[in-house]
């Protein structure tokens, strides 16, 4: 068990380190002159060479690459990613400012997406009517195929401008959260629902379900007590993909609904070539990704006794 834990934590740390190193190479080493990136392209020609040198000095660009890298890595370990070029504030503070807002949006959307996905899978499995199942099973692909900006704008049209139920933009109050959360949840729920529908159907045909029928269990009991847990396990594994969807979706959602957040900040940072900020965001994304997958890896043995067994005693059927 300890070895398993060490292995997984080690892997997570590696992912974060790799992300940092890769962005360092991409953003600070590969550009012909990283100093150029520190200035607004429009004003680049007007910058005097003294200013350039000063900037290079303060960012350490005149030192050897390896020293730069080690220096940045050392600072990053203490949570210091340098200062944003645009605002001059520290990258960490800038990110922490908008992080809670995105966190609320993303976790709300993930929760809603899970609810939608499980509802779809449960209905598709429990229903005895073929047309209901076919209809419900068509929903996930529909959800994935509608682009976020389209569904977001549609929802704005209907619920803010026509009905006036929810504010069109801004990030104050729970009410302003409703539309963005739904918008973001729809595309995220698609892949989860697709996977769940399939694994519910597979598990529903499995041997132990026949045993349960023979015990005298009813359809509802079987779906809830036997199929549910076994079928939910695979859904955990796609947490990584889901996370990617959440990040990509939040950029658009935050733009459409004019909310502040990591997504919009990233977009702005890329537009203005705010290199330190971009690096901070990339490392943050990698770290969250690693943490989520670490949590999944740690939860798995708790839910599946077979995996637990292979970890503790190393049975011959170790997968």
């Amino acid at each position: 068990m300890l070895r398993y834990l060490a292995l997984k934590v080690g892997r997570a740390l590696f992912v974060v380190w790799a992300a940092f190193t890769l962005t360092f190479v991409l953003l600070f080493v590969l550009p012909a002159n990283p100093v150029d990136l520190l200035f607004d392209p429009a004003e680049l020609n007007t910058v005097t060479s003294e200013v350039r040198e000063q900037a290079a000095e303060s960012y350490g660009f005149n030192k050897p690459v390896l020293l730069q890298y080690l220096g940045r890595l050392g600072h990053a370990l203490t949570g210091d990613f340098g200062n944003s070029v645009q605002s001059g504030r520290s990258v960490t503070a800038t990110i922490l400012d908008v992080l809670p807002s995105t966190f609320v949006l993303a976790s709300g959307a993930l929760l809603l997406a899970l609810l939608i996905a499980f509802a779809i899978a449960l209905i598709a499995t429990s229903t005895r009517r073929a047309w209901v199942r076919n209809l419900v099973e068509a929903l996930p692909s529909g959800a994935v195929s509608v682009p976020v900006f389209l569904s977001g704008i549609l929802m704005l049209q209907v619920f803010s401008f026509q009905l006036g139920w929810f504010p069109a933009f801004g990030d104050r109050g729970a009410k302003s959260l409703v539309l963005p959360v739904i918008t973001l949840a729809i595309p995220v729920s698609g892949p989860i629902a697709q996977l769940l529908v399939r694994s519910f159907a597979t598990e529903f045909r499995s041997g132990y379900v026949t045993t349960s029928w023979a015990k005298g269990a009813t359809r509802g009991v079987i779906v809830v007590r036997d199929v549910f847990r076994n079928a939910s396990l695979p859904a955990l594994t796609i947490a990584g993909i889901t996370f990617g969807n959440l990040i990509a979706g939040s950029v658009i959602t935050e733009t459409v609904f004019a909310r502040q957040g990591i997504g919009r900040m990233t977009q702005a940072a890329i537009n203005t070539l705010d290199v330190p900020l971009v690096q901070g965001v990339v490392v943050l994304a990698a770290a969250s990704f690693a943490v989520i997958n670490l949590i999944v890896d740690l939860i798995y043995p708790l839910l599946d006794p077979r995996l637990r067994a292979t970890l503790t005693v190393g049975s011959p059927r170790a997968a």
Binding site: G207, Y208, T211, W213, G216, A217, L303, R306
Partner: peptide
Amino acid sequence: RGNYVGFIPQDPNTSLNPV
């Protein structure tokens, strides 16, 4: 089922709920 007629399935390896 269960009450009046009991059923023993074919493959014991897949017929018990693993979790």
